[in-house]
Amino acid sequence: MSELRTSRRSLLKGTGALALVGLPATAAAAQPADPLCTLVTAYRAECAALNATEGDIPDATPLPIWDALNEGRIPAAASNAGAMAALRLAVEMCEDFAGADAIPNLMQAALAFLEGGEA
């Protein structure tokens, strides 16, 4: 399997996000992008970039996706895959970031889809 390379910009547009969550390219083209899948994928890309940084990460390093997850309402999942991605990330964050606002925000966005409403 070839390595998937995509820019952060294309992740935010959603095309790369669907491919990264395991949908075949034809399914990704046939379905609209799930904004929550896009956000979770972008968060993971942001973490990977930070982890690839050698030495200490400066305190002033911008973390736009982390900030978006923590600063309030995030988009509701538009698919089961989006809801599951959000819940998985919330569980992971519980282990590393106790008390982060991102955790209930992700759970609320997943629950909105599961209940058929909006976040």
Score class of each variant (00 low, 15 high):
63 L>M: 06
31 Q>G: 11
53 T>A: 06
110 A>R: 01
100 A>M: 07
86 A>C: 05
52 A>N: 13
42 A>K: 00
70 N>I: 08
119 A>V: 13
42 A>F: 01
103 I>M: 01
63 L>D: 03
42 A>D: 05
67 D>P: 07
56 D>C: 13
13 K>Y: 15
56 D>S: 15
60 A>M: 01
37 C>D: 03
34 D>T: 14
32 P>Y: 10
70 N>H: 09
112 A>Y: 11
79 S>A: 07
115 E>Y: 15
48 A>Y: 04
114 L>F: 09
119 A>I: 10
72 G>W: 03
45 A>M: 02
3 E>C: 04
98 A>W: 09
9 R>Q: 15
41 T>E: 13
95 E>W: 02
115 E>D: 11
72 G>C: 08
103 I>N: 03
55 G>W: 00
53 T>Y: 08
19 A>E: 12
107 M>Y: 07
85 A>E: 03
89 L>N: 09
80 N>P: 07
51 N>I: 09
93 M>A: 02
25 A>F: 13
7 S>P: 01
6 T>E: 06
17 A>H: 10
32 P>Q: 11
118 E>Q: 12
35 P>M: 02
6 T>H: 05
31 Q>H: 12
28 A>H: 02
99 G>D: 10
16 G>I: 05
113 F>Q: 01
74 I>E: 04
66 W>Q: 12
12 L>Q: 08
95 E>Q: 10
15 T>V: 15
96 D>W: 12
93 M>I: 11
102 A>R: 00
2 S>P: 05
57 I>G: 05
68 A>S: 12
61 T>I: 11
5 R>I: 15
62 P>I: 09
3 E>W: 06
43 Y>E: 04
72 G>H: 06
47 C>T: 14
63 L>W: 06
102 A>Q: 03
106 L>T: 04
45 A>P: 02
9 R>Y: 15
88 R>K: 11
6 T>L: 10
46 E>H: 03
54 E>K: 02
55 G>Q: 00
34 D>S: 06
104 P>A: 05
23 L>F: 10
14 G>P: 08
112 A>S: 14
112 A>P: 06
58 P>H: 01
108 Q>P: 01
86 A>K: 01
4 L>S: 12
118 E>L: 12
92 E>N: 13
19 A>Y: 05
80 N>H: 07
4 L>G: 14
83 A>Q: 05
87 L>A: 05
33 A>F: 11
46 E>K: 02
40 V>H: 00
71 E>H: 12
39 L>W: 04
37 C>M: 06
53 T>F: 13
113 F>P: 00
59 D>E: 13
99 G>R: 01
107 M>H: 08
18 L>D: 14
104 P>Q: 06
96 D>N: 10
35 P>W: 00
100 A>P: 04
13 K>N: 12
19 A>C: 05
84 M>Q: 04
9 R>W: 15
114 L>H: 07
44 R>E: 03
83 A>C: 08
109 A>E: 11
86 A>V: 09
58 P>G: 03
66 W>T: 15
115 E>H: 14
116 G>H: 14
17 A>F: 10
90 A>L: 01
94 C>P: 02
92 E>G: 14
50 L>E: 07
29 A>F: 07
88 R>P: 03
20 L>D: 15
55 G>I: 02
77 A>D: 08
35 P>K: 01
53 T>L: 06
5 R>F: 13
85 A>K: 00
92 E>R: 10
70 N>L: 08
18 L>N: 13
17 A>D: 13
1 M>G: 15
